[in-house]
Nucleic acid binder design. Structure first.
Lengths: 341, 341
DNA sequence: CTGAAAGCGCTTACAG
DNA sequence: CTGAAAGCGCTTACAG
């Protein structure tokens, strides 16, 4: 700034070559057996003038920008915001920055973002794909470009991914409701183009089967992972001739919307309905609702995704087949938490 | 990928110069009166091979990376997550990407991030500064580097900023409690190194004065904007010989923590205490609490900050004194919302 | 209407 | 132990 300082400035001031300055400042003084005093002088001068290497120039030359792209479907969802926070911290420890983008569950935006992040020199990508198409990811894979899938999984795309046991957790949640005596559990689901939504539905159905309960389409509302979706889902339930006696919400936003809509419903039976949901928020304890949730380990998810991605990236130079090793599939566990039971 | 395509590839394939390809592909074919058919051929070929320009190379050459840095204090706070989402959308419309970072309210991390973002070629910065020091920002200003301050303001640093009327909104919230008959309103405040925290405290005090109520230090808890801070604040209140009859929480996280702690407190009088707070969340309606909040226009804040920043950035070439124009100070209004009144 | 050449700020063989 | 020179992929005077 104020005219950015370059290596050349330091070099000329100290009467050494840019080569030497570069070697010292990028920490290769030992490998190149730079004279300790030369190194010292350079370090001191760089410190003094507050030299900051241009990652742009470095990235262009080395094809390593030390930048990761994180593409989530909805950064305003605390689940993804927490993941972003964790990813960023994990990346920072290794000297990597994270560019965050939100697709808004729009496949076109997702594709555009992927291209954008790559053209900005991202060394790898972490993406919570909108689905249902994943051809753009398959293409990255063919090109040996490192990426990790997060939260969502494609059966036919074998790549590194980290997700939670959605089916198991959903089943567990519904079982809690069933054990509590619920016979007519409703399901407010999310975007079916995602594995997350589908597996949660499967878990719900499995729990019903296990408890000998009937699956009733009229109690099922499938839309997307939004507050509005939860509201509409609740709306549908309110119109049912025989009301449900328990509700499963596929994520926190749907839960928000559902509760919001129910708040203006008649007390009976809606106020007393036990609810199951994915995701935990600080409010749950004080809702005064009977609530069982599957808390997701956002921090672990984000950190692990970065870890996997970095392993690929650092395993070889850009362009090399860094994706040929066996892929890691991380199925993390959720924690079941009960409120007002 | 699969060996990234470069302009040179297109040029040699089509038998034209890289210059021409560059001019067409960066949309300057008209200004340079390129033969329409030549332009067409180049466009077609670029499309066919899926050419994506390297923003790294472009940025290095033009000193414009079309990237903005957004540095918030806590991305896991929905307030900032929503801002990030809005900023990203606003920036994307102008072809700018946003790199998001979280300082965690740590001034050292903030400084490091600022340097980091700049070295990655960010054309400008939006920052919610941790405070209390802002010398690093003053330095950017002296260097003519574009930045906008968000949510938080430094009295002695005249620069572009966008924030809400914290004092007015806080005062309004407390007045609602006072009008409701509260005489002993407690204050759970945030990080006093931020203008936000200080102005909210001032608004609270002004409301007390206006209502002829005494300011009592024992009902005031000043810490940071975290859930834990809210818990500790509530803890302090619970120990008071004379309990408060209303609580002001300086942000949503503090509110979470406060409610969380109060949930395990005796019903009387804690369950019935009316509460005022900044920030809105979908849960509020269904809390069954008497709650008045100042909803902040996150979308506007984020979008406006990007708008101001882009105006600076696009007002001149890098290095020029783009910060010499009068600075814009945007004081946005909050919306007061009542629940359970 | 088009191109040859220089240069953005780094890193890295190659040479000594 | 150190340096001259080439090159990463673009853009942009300059020249025609």
């Amino acid at each position: 700034m104020a005219q950015r300082i370059r290596m050349a400035d330091i070099a000329s001031k100290l009467g050494v070559s840019r080569t030497t300055v570069s070697r010292v400042l990028s920490g290769k003084s030992v490998a190149f057996r730079i004279a300790p005093e030369t190194a010292e002088r350079i370090l001191k001068e760089a410190e003094k003038v507050g030299y900051q290497p241009s990652q742009l120039a470095r990235g262009l030359r080395t094809a390593f920008s030390r930048t990761l792209g994180l593409l989530v479907s909805d950064i305003s969802n605390p689940f993804f915001a927490n993941i972003a926070w964790a990813a960023e911290q994990a990346a920072e420890q290794q000297g990597f920055a994270v560019i965050v983008g939100s697709s808004g569950e729009d496949l076109k935006r997702e594709r555009a973002y992927v291209n954008n992040l790559i053209s900005r020199g991202a060394d790898g990508l972490i993406v919570a794909p909108a689905g249902p198409d994943y051809e753009h990811l398959a293409e990255l894979q063919r090109d040996g470009y490192p990426f990790v899938t997060l939260d969502r999984v494609f059966e036919d795309l074998d790549c590194d991914w980290v997700a939670v046991d959605n089916q198991g957790a959903a089943r567990g949640l519904c079982e809690v409701l069933a054990e509590r005596g619920c016979k007519r559990i409703a399901f407010l689901g999310g975007r079916m183009e995602t594995s997350t939504a589908r597996l949660r539905l499967e878990g719900y159905r499995a729990a019903l089967r296990g408890a000998g309960l009937a699956f009733d389409q009229t109690r099922v509302h499938l839309s997307d992972f939004s507050v509005e979706s939860g509201r509409r889902g609740a709306e549908q339930l309110l119109k049912l001739p025989v009301p449900p006696d328990g509700i499963f919400c596929a994520n926190n936003k749907i839960l928000f919307g559902c509760l919001d809509r129910l708040a203006s419903a008649p007390k009976e039976p809606w106020a007393a309905l036990p609810i199951a949901s994915f995701d935990e928020t600080p409010f749950m304890k004080v809702l005064g609702r009977t609530l069982v949730v599957a808390a997701q380990p956002e921090h672990k998810i984000g950190a692990r995704a970065v870890e996997l991605l970095l392993k690929r990236i650092l395993s070889g130079p850009p362009g090399s087949p860094r994706m040929n090793k066996p892929y890691t599939h991380d199925l993390l566990q959720t924690e079941q938490k009960k409120f007002g039971f």
